[in-house]
């Protein structure tokens, strides 16, 4: 709360608000003035009206909640999986050597292309969406964790070894905490990707969620509805990204402030 108040005290923040206001105004009036039809660009007033209508008759809250739930579950599971595999590969040179070509291949494959396959396997339920999210979140976490394990200063490990630390102690007291900054940059990326994974899953097959509303709105040429879905998806992304940043600020509190991003004070 104080952070928000501090933010409001800054001149730049007011500049930001002013910009938002200008953009909304231009969005509202300019397309109409230039003769662009509403089904191409829906002005904010129409988007707002559609938002209220969807809340009322299309169970918009439920769709949003379902998408949010799938994104959260997919993000958490994908992150855990990425961490487990990342740390395992980081600890075992053999495992990394054996598995890295396949992991590379899978990393290059466009993950969202798996969505139809998962729908065929699991049907029109939450699983294919969560699975696409897991798959897409997995890689940035894995790559960042593995990178951190590889680039760790060997002298730090030697220091622990000189105190007769066990492998387990070296992991929990040196390697794991040392990987935190890299893990969190992976989580930041993963949190935005999770939304993409779930939306694609919903667009491919399903009858609920914001991705479904996107396709449904498109079918009806209901541009305001598409805008509402896009805005809510962005909102979900912001919420999850914000949660990651909050957690990061707690965990990485020991880092010099200048090194963490988007600190206003």
């Amino acid at each position: 709360m104080t952070a928000v108040i501090n933010l409001l005290a800054r001149k730049e923040a007011w500049g930001s608000f002013l910009l938002l206001f200008v953009v909304l105004a231009v969005w509202e009036w300019l397309p109409g003035a230039m003769g662009v039809p509403v089904f191409i660009v829906a002005p904010p007033s129409r988007v707002w009206a559609e938002f209220m209508r969807l809340l009322d008759v299309e169970r918009l809250f439920l769709h949003t909640a379902i998408t949010f739930f799938q994104v959260m579950v997919g993000f958490v599971l994908g992150s855990l999986l990425g961490m487990v595999v990342g740390y395992t590969l980081g600890l075992s040179k053999t495992a990394e050597f054996v598995l890295s070509p396949y992991i590379l291949a899978l990393q290059i494959a466009p993950k969202v292309a798996f969505a139809p396959l998962f729908v065929m396997w699991f049907g029109f339920n939450v699983y294919p969406k969560i699975l696409v999210a897991v798959l897409i979140v997995f890689f940035p976490i894995l790559i960042n964790v593995l990178g951190a394990m590889r680039t760790l200063d060997g002298a730090m490990v030697n220091l622990a070894r000189s105190f007769s630390a066990s492998k387990l102690q070296i992991f929990w007291k040196i390697q794991f905490p040392a990987s935190m900054p890299a893990l969190f940059s992976g989580l930041r990326i993963g949190s935005t990707l999770a939304v993409i994974g779930v939306v694609v899953g919903e667009m491919v097959g399903g009858n609920n969620g914001l991705g479904y509303l996107l396709v449904f709105g498109e079918g009806q040429a209901n541009t305001p509805m598409v805008f509402v879905a896009i805005l809510l998806l962005t909102f979900i992304g912001i919420v999850i990204y914000g949660l990651v940043v909050l957690l990061e600020n707690r965990v990485l509190h020991y880092l010099p402030r200048a090194a963490t991003t988007e600190k206003s004070t």
Partner: peptide
């Protein structure tokens, strides 16, 4: 590694996520 010797290097090797006190405790914690 044994208890009779301890080393110190040019790099301080302080663990950035531990306070100074926790860093000094590190070896005995292990």
């Amino acid at each position: 590694p044994n208890r009779q010797v301890a080393f110190m290097l040019q790099k301080d090797l302080l663990l950035p996520w531990r306070s100074i006190l926790e860093n000094v405790c590190f070896g005995q914690e292990i």
